[in-house]
Nucleic acid binder design. Structure first.
Lengths: 206, 206
DNA sequence: GAGCCCTCTTGACGGCTGTCAAGCACTTCC
DNA sequence: GGAAGTGCTTGACAGCCGTCAAGAGGGCTC
Protein backbone atom coordinates (compact mmCIF):
# COMPACT_ATOMS: atom_id res chain seq x y z
CA UNK A 1 0.00 0.00 0.00
CA UNK A 2 2.12 2.90 -1.28
CA UNK A 3 1.25 6.56 -0.68
CA UNK A 4 -0.04 7.05 -4.21
CA UNK A 5 -2.49 4.20 -4.00
CA UNK A 6 -3.64 5.50 -0.66
CA UNK A 7 -4.27 8.92 -2.12
CA UNK A 8 -6.12 7.55 -5.09
CA UNK A 9 -8.31 5.44 -2.86
CA UNK A 10 -9.02 8.32 -0.59
CA UNK A 11 -9.81 10.52 -3.58
CA UNK A 12 -12.15 7.94 -5.00
CA UNK A 13 -13.87 7.51 -1.69
CA UNK A 14 -14.07 11.24 -1.28
CA UNK A 15 -15.54 11.67 -4.74
CA UNK A 16 -18.11 8.98 -4.15
CA UNK A 17 -18.97 10.46 -0.77
CA UNK A 18 -19.32 13.88 -2.31
CA UNK A 19 -21.75 12.50 -4.88
CA UNK A 20 -23.63 10.69 -2.12
CA UNK A 21 -23.90 13.94 -0.21
CA UNK A 22 -25.09 15.73 -3.31
CA UNK A 23 -27.78 13.13 -3.86
CA UNK A 24 -28.68 13.24 -0.19
CA UNK A 25 -29.29 16.95 -0.49
CA UNK A 26 -31.64 16.43 -3.41
CA UNK A 27 -33.34 13.69 -1.45
CA UNK A 28 -33.73 15.88 1.62
CA UNK A 29 -35.24 18.64 -0.48
CA UNK A 30 -37.78 16.27 -1.97
CA UNK A 31 -38.52 14.55 1.33
CA UNK A 32 -39.05 17.89 3.01
CA UNK A 33 -41.56 18.89 0.37
CA UNK A 34 -43.49 15.68 -0.09
CA UNK A 35 -42.90 13.66 3.07
CA UNK A 36 -41.55 10.17 3.45
CA UNK A 37 -44.75 8.44 2.38
CA UNK A 38 -45.05 10.14 -0.98
CA UNK A 39 -41.43 10.54 -2.02
CA UNK A 40 -40.25 8.18 -4.75
CA UNK A 41 -36.74 7.55 -5.99
CA UNK A 42 -37.67 8.88 -9.39
CA UNK A 43 -38.85 12.12 -7.85
CA UNK A 44 -35.63 12.49 -5.88
CA UNK A 45 -33.66 11.98 -9.08
CA UNK A 46 -35.77 14.57 -10.89
CA UNK A 47 -34.79 17.10 -8.25
CA UNK A 48 -31.14 16.28 -8.87
CA UNK A 49 -28.89 16.52 -11.94
CA UNK A 50 -29.00 12.76 -12.49
CA UNK A 51 -31.29 10.02 -13.63
CA UNK A 52 -33.11 7.65 -11.33
CA UNK A 53 -30.74 4.74 -11.96
CA UNK A 54 -27.84 6.48 -10.31
CA UNK A 55 -29.45 6.17 -6.91
CA UNK A 56 -28.94 2.42 -7.00
CA UNK A 57 -25.36 2.95 -8.01
CA UNK A 58 -24.60 4.84 -4.79
CA UNK A 59 -27.13 3.27 -2.45
CA UNK A 60 -28.18 -0.34 -2.09
CA UNK A 61 -31.85 0.44 -1.69
CA UNK A 62 -34.30 3.11 -0.69
CA UNK A 63 -34.05 2.61 3.05
CA UNK A 64 -30.27 2.91 2.96
CA UNK A 65 -30.59 6.17 1.05
CA UNK A 66 -33.04 7.52 3.60
CA UNK A 67 -30.82 6.44 6.46
CA UNK A 68 -27.86 8.16 4.84
CA UNK A 69 -29.97 11.30 4.51
CA UNK A 70 -30.91 11.23 8.18
CA UNK A 71 -27.28 11.05 9.24
CA UNK A 72 -26.28 13.71 6.73
CA UNK A 73 -28.99 16.01 8.01
CA UNK A 74 -27.89 15.43 11.57
CA UNK A 75 -24.39 16.70 10.84
CA UNK A 76 -25.83 19.94 9.52
CA UNK A 77 -28.05 20.95 12.37
CA UNK A 78 -26.67 19.53 15.56
CA UNK A 79 -24.35 22.44 16.28
CA UNK A 80 -27.04 25.03 15.77
CA UNK A 81 -26.91 26.51 19.27
CA UNK A 82 -23.24 26.04 20.02
CA UNK A 83 -22.25 29.53 18.99
CA UNK A 84 -24.89 30.99 21.29
CA UNK A 85 -23.72 28.81 24.13
CA UNK A 86 -20.10 29.83 23.52
CA UNK A 87 -20.59 33.57 23.24
CA UNK A 88 -23.42 34.42 25.64
CA UNK A 89 -22.07 36.06 28.77
CA UNK A 90 -25.18 36.24 30.96
CA UNK A 91 -28.10 33.92 31.64
CA UNK A 92 -30.56 36.48 30.33
CA UNK A 93 -28.64 36.83 27.08
CA UNK A 94 -28.49 33.08 26.56
CA UNK A 95 -32.16 32.78 27.39
CA UNK A 96 -33.28 35.35 24.85
CA UNK A 97 -30.87 34.26 22.13
CA UNK A 98 -31.95 30.65 22.53
CA UNK A 99 -35.59 31.61 22.08
CA UNK A 100 -34.63 33.78 19.10
CA UNK A 101 -32.74 30.95 17.47
CA UNK A 102 -35.57 28.51 18.06
CA UNK A 103 -37.94 30.83 16.24
CA UNK A 104 -35.39 31.47 13.52
CA UNK A 105 -34.90 27.81 12.69
CA UNK A 106 -38.64 27.25 12.67
CA UNK A 107 -38.99 30.13 10.26
CA UNK A 108 -36.11 29.21 8.00
CA UNK A 109 -36.37 25.44 7.82
CA UNK A 110 -39.87 24.23 8.58
CA UNK A 111 -39.59 21.56 5.89
CA UNK A 112 -36.45 20.05 7.34
CA UNK A 113 -38.07 19.91 10.75
CA UNK A 114 -41.28 18.28 9.60
CA UNK A 115 -39.15 15.78 7.72
CA UNK A 116 -37.30 15.00 10.91
CA UNK A 117 -40.52 14.39 12.78
CA UNK A 118 -41.75 12.32 9.87
CA UNK A 119 -38.67 10.11 9.90
CA UNK A 120 -38.69 9.77 13.65
CA UNK A 121 -42.29 8.60 13.49
CA UNK A 122 -41.50 6.19 10.66
CA UNK A 123 -38.86 4.70 12.93
CA UNK A 124 -41.72 3.61 15.17
CA UNK A 125 -42.81 1.33 12.31
CA UNK A 126 -39.61 0.50 10.45
CA UNK A 127 -36.91 -1.16 12.48
CA UNK A 128 -34.30 -0.41 9.85
CA UNK A 129 -34.66 3.32 10.46
CA UNK A 130 -34.61 3.09 14.21
CA UNK A 131 -30.92 3.08 15.03
CA UNK A 132 -30.11 6.10 12.88
CA UNK A 133 -33.07 7.98 14.31
CA UNK A 134 -32.16 7.17 17.89
CA UNK A 135 -28.61 8.35 17.26
CA UNK A 136 -29.68 11.71 15.92
CA UNK A 137 -32.26 12.06 18.66
CA UNK A 138 -29.54 11.50 21.20
CA UNK A 139 -27.32 14.10 19.60
CA UNK A 140 -30.18 16.60 19.60
CA UNK A 141 -30.67 15.84 23.27
CA UNK A 142 -27.01 16.62 23.91
CA UNK A 143 -27.32 19.80 21.87
CA UNK A 144 -30.17 20.96 24.11
CA UNK A 145 -28.34 19.79 27.19
CA UNK A 146 -25.35 21.99 26.35
CA UNK A 147 -27.70 24.97 26.29
CA UNK A 148 -29.37 24.10 29.57
CA UNK A 149 -26.22 23.31 31.54
CA UNK A 150 -24.64 26.54 30.35
CA UNK A 151 -27.81 28.42 31.24
CA UNK A 152 -27.75 26.88 34.71
CA UNK A 153 -24.07 27.72 35.06
CA UNK A 154 -24.60 31.35 34.12
CA UNK A 155 -27.52 31.46 36.55
CA UNK A 156 -25.52 29.97 39.35
CA UNK A 157 -27.95 27.06 39.52
CA UNK A 158 -28.33 23.40 38.53
CA UNK A 159 -30.61 21.68 36.01
CA UNK A 160 -33.54 20.12 37.81
CA UNK A 161 -34.26 17.38 35.28
CA UNK A 162 -32.08 14.92 33.40
CA UNK A 163 -31.03 15.57 29.83
CA UNK A 164 -33.59 13.22 28.26
CA UNK A 165 -36.57 14.71 30.05
CA UNK A 166 -35.45 18.26 29.40
CA UNK A 167 -35.11 17.48 25.71
CA UNK A 168 -38.51 15.78 25.63
CA UNK A 169 -40.20 18.85 27.08
CA UNK A 170 -38.64 21.31 24.68
CA UNK A 171 -39.15 18.97 21.77
CA UNK A 172 -42.83 18.71 22.57
CA UNK A 173 -43.13 22.47 22.56
CA UNK A 174 -41.23 22.77 19.29
CA UNK A 175 -43.19 20.05 17.51
CA UNK A 176 -46.46 21.68 18.47
CA UNK A 177 -45.18 25.05 17.30
CA UNK A 178 -44.19 23.51 13.98
CA UNK A 179 -47.63 22.10 13.33
CA UNK A 180 -49.21 25.42 14.25
CA UNK A 181 -46.75 27.31 12.09
CA UNK A 182 -47.53 25.11 9.09
CA UNK A 183 -51.23 25.81 9.45
CA UNK A 184 -50.21 29.45 9.25
CA UNK A 185 -52.12 30.83 12.14
CA UNK A 186 -49.58 33.63 12.31
CA UNK A 187 -49.32 33.32 16.05
CA UNK A 188 -47.09 30.26 16.25
CA UNK A 189 -43.78 32.12 16.13
CA UNK A 190 -44.30 34.59 18.99
CA UNK A 191 -46.01 31.88 21.00
CA UNK A 192 -43.01 29.60 20.62
CA UNK A 193 -40.71 32.43 21.66
CA UNK A 194 -42.72 33.14 24.78
CA UNK A 195 -43.05 29.49 25.72
CA UNK A 196 -39.37 28.69 25.35
CA UNK A 197 -38.37 31.84 27.15
CA UNK A 198 -40.74 31.14 30.04
CA UNK A 199 -39.80 27.51 30.25
CA UNK A 200 -36.05 27.87 30.70
CA UNK A 201 -36.04 29.11 34.32
CA UNK A 202 -38.26 26.24 35.46
CA UNK A 203 -35.70 23.78 34.12
CA UNK A 204 -33.10 24.89 36.67
CA UNK A 205 -33.06 25.61 40.37
CA UNK A 206 -30.51 26.72 42.90
CA UNK B 1 -92.04 12.90 6.73
CA UNK B 2 -94.00 10.43 8.81
CA UNK B 3 -92.54 8.70 11.88
CA UNK B 4 -92.01 5.43 10.02
CA UNK B 5 -90.01 7.07 7.26
CA UNK B 6 -88.03 8.89 9.88
CA UNK B 7 -87.31 5.65 11.68
CA UNK B 8 -86.35 3.88 8.50
CA UNK B 9 -84.05 6.67 7.49
CA UNK B 10 -82.48 6.77 10.89
CA UNK B 11 -82.11 3.00 10.87
CA UNK B 12 -80.45 3.08 7.48
CA UNK B 13 -78.10 5.82 8.51
CA UNK B 14 -77.36 4.00 11.70
CA UNK B 15 -76.65 0.78 9.83
CA UNK B 16 -74.39 2.55 7.39
CA UNK B 17 -72.61 4.30 10.23
CA UNK B 18 -72.20 1.00 12.03
CA UNK B 19 -70.59 -0.50 8.93
CA UNK B 20 -68.38 2.56 8.59
CA UNK B 21 -67.28 2.15 12.19
CA UNK B 22 -66.62 -1.53 11.63
CA UNK B 23 -64.47 -0.74 8.61
CA UNK B 24 -62.76 2.05 10.54
CA UNK B 25 -61.78 -0.45 13.18
CA UNK B 26 -60.24 -2.75 10.62
CA UNK B 27 -58.48 0.23 9.13
CA UNK B 28 -57.15 1.37 12.49
CA UNK B 29 -55.83 -2.11 13.18
CA UNK B 30 -54.01 -2.19 9.87
CA UNK B 31 -52.75 1.37 10.17
CA UNK B 32 -51.45 0.68 13.65
CA UNK B 33 -49.51 -2.30 12.42
CA UNK B 34 -48.13 -1.00 9.15
CA UNK B 35 -48.24 2.78 9.43
CA UNK B 36 -49.86 5.31 7.16
CA UNK B 37 -47.22 5.10 4.47
CA UNK B 38 -47.49 1.37 3.89
CA UNK B 39 -51.18 0.72 4.45
CA UNK B 40 -53.21 0.07 1.31
CA UNK B 41 -56.95 -0.15 0.93
CA UNK B 42 -56.66 -3.78 -0.10
CA UNK B 43 -54.79 -4.58 3.07
CA UNK B 44 -57.43 -2.85 5.18
CA UNK B 45 -60.11 -4.90 3.45
CA UNK B 46 -58.16 -8.12 4.04
CA UNK B 47 -58.21 -7.36 7.75
CA UNK B 48 -61.98 -6.98 7.57
CA UNK B 49 -64.81 -9.32 6.57
CA UNK B 50 -65.28 -7.57 3.24
CA UNK B 51 -63.65 -7.12 -0.11
CA UNK B 52 -61.68 -4.07 -1.14
CA UNK B 53 -64.45 -2.60 -3.25
CA UNK B 54 -66.69 -1.98 -0.28
CA UNK B 55 -64.38 0.72 0.99
CA UNK B 56 -65.36 2.93 -1.93
CA UNK B 57 -68.96 2.23 -1.23
CA UNK B 58 -68.75 3.76 2.24
CA UNK B 59 -65.96 6.27 1.69
CA UNK B 60 -65.32 8.57 -1.24
CA UNK B 61 -61.59 8.01 -1.22
CA UNK B 62 -58.66 6.99 0.90
CA UNK B 63 -58.13 10.31 2.61
CA UNK B 64 -61.76 10.47 3.67
CA UNK B 65 -61.48 6.99 5.16
CA UNK B 66 -58.38 7.97 7.09
CA UNK B 67 -60.02 11.14 8.32
CA UNK B 68 -63.03 9.16 9.48
CA UNK B 69 -60.69 6.81 11.33
CA UNK B 70 -58.95 9.67 13.09
CA UNK B 71 -62.24 11.02 14.35
CA UNK B 72 -63.46 7.58 15.33
CA UNK B 73 -60.27 6.95 17.24
CA UNK B 74 -60.60 10.27 19.01
CA UNK B 75 -63.97 9.33 20.43
CA UNK B 76 -62.50 6.20 21.96
CA UNK B 77 -59.58 7.65 23.82
CA UNK B 78 -60.37 11.18 24.77
CA UNK B 79 -62.10 10.32 28.03
CA UNK B 80 -59.30 8.06 29.19
CA UNK B 81 -58.46 10.00 32.35
CA UNK B 82 -61.90 11.29 33.23
CA UNK B 83 -62.67 8.52 35.68
CA UNK B 84 -59.42 9.18 37.51
CA UNK B 85 -60.18 12.88 37.63
CA UNK B 86 -63.68 12.22 38.93
CA UNK B 87 -62.82 9.73 41.66
CA UNK B 88 -59.45 10.83 43.02
CA UNK B 89 -59.84 12.53 46.36
CA UNK B 90 -56.32 13.81 47.02
CA UNK B 91 -53.63 15.39 44.90
CA UNK B 92 -51.24 12.55 45.63
CA UNK B 93 -53.79 9.96 44.54
CA UNK B 94 -54.50 11.77 41.30
CA UNK B 95 -50.81 12.19 40.69
CA UNK B 96 -50.00 8.50 41.07
CA UNK B 97 -53.07 7.25 39.23
CA UNK B 98 -52.37 9.57 36.31
CA UNK B 99 -48.84 8.23 36.03
CA UNK B 100 -50.18 4.68 36.31
CA UNK B 101 -52.73 5.26 33.56
CA UNK B 102 -50.14 6.85 31.32
CA UNK B 103 -48.00 3.75 31.61
CA UNK B 104 -51.01 1.49 31.17
CA UNK B 105 -52.11 3.05 27.91
CA UNK B 106 -48.56 2.94 26.59
CA UNK B 107 -48.43 -0.75 27.48
CA UNK B 108 -51.84 -1.68 26.12
CA UNK B 109 -52.07 0.38 22.97
CA UNK B 110 -48.65 1.29 21.64
CA UNK B 111 -49.84 0.75 18.08
CA UNK B 112 -52.73 3.17 18.38
CA UNK B 113 -50.41 5.76 19.82
CA UNK B 114 -47.76 5.44 17.14
CA UNK B 115 -50.54 5.67 14.58
CA UNK B 116 -51.70 8.89 16.15
CA UNK B 117 -48.23 10.37 15.96
CA UNK B 118 -47.95 9.14 12.42
CA UNK B 119 -51.17 10.82 11.36
CA UNK B 120 -50.34 14.02 13.18
CA UNK B 121 -47.04 14.17 11.34
CA UNK B 122 -48.73 13.41 8.03
CA UNK B 123 -50.93 16.41 8.69
CA UNK B 124 -47.78 18.52 8.40
CA UNK B 125 -47.65 17.45 4.76
CA UNK B 126 -51.26 16.82 3.79
CA UNK B 127 -53.60 19.74 4.20
CA UNK B 128 -56.65 17.50 3.95
CA UNK B 129 -55.73 15.74 7.17
CA UNK B 130 -54.94 18.88 9.09
CA UNK B 131 -58.32 19.94 10.38
CA UNK B 132 -59.24 16.54 11.78
CA UNK B 133 -55.81 16.24 13.41
CA UNK B 134 -55.99 19.69 14.96
CA UNK B 135 -59.41 18.90 16.35
CA UNK B 136 -58.31 15.72 18.05
CA UNK B 137 -55.13 17.40 19.26
CA UNK B 138 -57.26 20.08 20.84
CA UNK B 139 -59.46 17.52 22.56
CA UNK B 140 -56.39 15.71 23.88
CA UNK B 141 -55.19 19.04 25.20
CA UNK B 142 -58.48 19.51 27.02
CA UNK B 143 -58.28 15.97 28.36
CA UNK B 144 -54.88 16.74 29.90
CA UNK B 145 -56.09 20.11 31.07
CA UNK B 146 -58.91 18.49 33.06
CA UNK B 147 -56.29 16.41 34.85
CA UNK B 148 -54.04 19.35 35.60
CA UNK B 149 -56.73 21.76 36.79
CA UNK B 150 -58.14 19.09 39.08
CA UNK B 151 -54.66 18.33 40.36
CA UNK B 152 -54.12 22.01 41.06
CA UNK B 153 -57.49 22.23 42.76
CA UNK B 154 -56.74 19.28 45.02
CA UNK B 155 -53.35 20.80 45.78
CA UNK B 156 -54.82 24.17 46.62
CA UNK B 157 -52.79 25.73 43.82
CA UNK B 158 -53.08 27.07 40.27
CA UNK B 159 -51.65 25.79 36.97
CA UNK B 160 -48.58 27.80 36.06
CA UNK B 161 -48.80 27.32 32.31
CA UNK B 162 -51.60 27.53 29.79
CA UNK B 163 -53.37 24.40 28.56
CA UNK B 164 -51.55 24.23 25.23
CA UNK B 165 -48.07 24.45 26.73
CA UNK B 166 -48.88 21.96 29.46
CA UNK B 167 -50.14 19.51 26.88
CA UNK B 168 -47.08 20.05 24.69
CA UNK B 169 -44.75 19.21 27.56
CA UNK B 170 -46.52 16.02 28.56
CA UNK B 171 -46.96 15.02 24.94
CA UNK B 172 -43.25 15.38 24.34
CA UNK B 173 -42.53 13.11 27.26
CA UNK B 174 -45.07 10.54 26.12
CA UNK B 175 -43.90 10.50 22.51
CA UNK B 176 -40.34 9.92 23.60
CA UNK B 177 -41.44 7.14 25.94
CA UNK B 178 -43.34 5.51 23.09
CA UNK B 179 -40.33 5.44 20.81
CA UNK B 180 -38.20 4.03 23.59
CA UNK B 181 -40.83 1.48 24.47
CA UNK B 182 -41.01 0.27 20.87
CA UNK B 183 -37.27 -0.27 20.78
CA UNK B 184 -37.87 -2.46 23.80
CA UNK B 185 -35.18 -1.21 26.09
CA UNK B 186 -37.31 -2.41 29.00
CA UNK B 187 -36.75 0.79 30.91
CA UNK B 188 -39.21 2.99 29.08
CA UNK B 189 -42.23 2.21 31.25
CA UNK B 190 -40.78 2.97 34.69
CA UNK B 191 -38.99 5.98 33.25
CA UNK B 192 -42.25 7.38 31.91
CA UNK B 193 -43.89 6.80 35.27
CA UNK B 194 -41.15 8.64 37.12
CA UNK B 195 -41.06 11.50 34.64
CA UNK B 196 -44.78 12.09 34.64
CA UNK B 197 -44.97 11.81 38.40
CA UNK B 198 -42.09 14.26 38.90
CA UNK B 199 -43.39 16.68 36.33
CA UNK B 200 -46.88 17.27 37.70
CA UNK B 201 -45.90 19.42 40.72
CA UNK B 202 -43.84 21.77 38.57
CA UNK B 203 -46.92 22.45 36.43
CA UNK B 204 -48.72 24.13 39.31
CA UNK B 205 -47.82 26.67 41.96
CA UNK B 206 -49.59 28.35 44.85
C1' DG C 1 -94.25 -11.84 -8.30
C1' DA C 2 -92.13 -8.08 -10.86
C1' DG C 3 -89.33 -4.24 -10.06
C1' DC C 4 -86.40 -1.59 -7.10
C1' DC C 5 -82.96 -0.46 -3.88
C1' DC C 6 -79.27 -1.52 -0.77
C1' DT C 7 -74.83 -4.18 -0.21
C1' DC C 8 -71.25 -6.20 -1.66
C1' DT C 9 -67.99 -8.75 -5.02
C1' DT C 10 -65.34 -9.12 -8.97
C1' DG C 11 -62.33 -7.76 -12.33
C1' DA C 12 -60.21 -4.47 -14.81
C1' DC C 13 -57.88 0.23 -15.89
C1' DG C 14 -53.90 3.31 -16.04
C1' DG C 15 -50.29 4.68 -13.42
C1' DC C 16 -46.65 4.59 -10.26
C1' DT C 17 -43.28 1.90 -7.51
C1' DG C 18 -38.38 -0.22 -6.36
C1' DT C 19 -35.13 -2.73 -8.59
C1' DC C 20 -31.86 -4.16 -11.87
C1' DA C 21 -29.64 -5.63 -16.27
C1' DA C 22 -27.61 -3.84 -20.46
C1' DG C 23 -25.05 -0.62 -22.54
C1' DC C 24 -22.92 4.00 -23.53
C1' DA C 25 -19.28 7.63 -22.70
C1' DC C 26 -15.25 8.62 -20.55
C1' DT C 27 -10.94 8.01 -17.82
C1' DT C 28 -7.05 5.42 -16.35
C1' DC C 29 -3.72 1.94 -16.77
C1' DC C 30 -0.55 -1.45 -18.94
C1' DG D 1 -3.83 2.03 -28.40
C1' DG D 2 -6.26 -1.71 -26.67
C1' DA D 3 -8.13 -3.14 -22.08
C1' DA D 4 -10.14 -2.50 -17.85
C1' DG D 5 -12.80 0.13 -14.84
C1' DT D 6 -15.80 4.02 -13.32
C1' DG D 7 -19.99 6.81 -13.66
C1' DC D 8 -24.19 7.29 -15.41
C1' DT D 9 -28.43 6.55 -18.56
C1' DT D 10 -31.96 3.96 -20.52
C1' DG D 11 -35.48 0.83 -20.62
C1' DA D 12 -37.71 -2.92 -18.96
C1' DC D 13 -39.61 -6.12 -15.21
C1' DA D 14 -43.07 -7.61 -11.91
C1' DG D 15 -45.94 -5.93 -8.60
C1' DC D 16 -48.81 -2.94 -6.06
C1' DC D 17 -51.66 1.18 -5.89
C1' DG D 18 -56.42 3.91 -5.84
C1' DT D 19 -60.35 3.97 -8.37
C1' DC D 20 -64.44 2.58 -10.58
C1' DA D 21 -67.76 0.18 -13.66
C1' DA D 22 -70.53 -3.93 -14.10
C1' DG D 23 -73.14 -6.97 -12.07
C1' DA D 24 -74.72 -10.51 -8.61
C1' DG D 25 -77.58 -11.54 -4.51
C1' DG D 26 -81.20 -10.68 -1.48
C1' DG D 27 -84.69 -8.20 0.95
C1' DC D 28 -88.20 -4.64 0.20
C1' DT D 29 -92.32 -2.45 -1.60
C1' DC D 30 -96.33 -2.10 -4.59
Amino acid sequence: MNPTAGTVTRTRETKADARRDQLAESALMTLGERGYAKTSLREIAQNSLFSHGVLHYYFDNKIELITYCVRYYKAQCVTRYDEIVATSTTADELRIRFADKLVETLTDEPQMHRLWYDLRTQAMFEVELRQAVLEIDKSLEMMIWRVITRFAELSGAEPTLDAATTYALLDGVFEKALLEHLTDTGTALPTLHTRAWSLLPSLIST
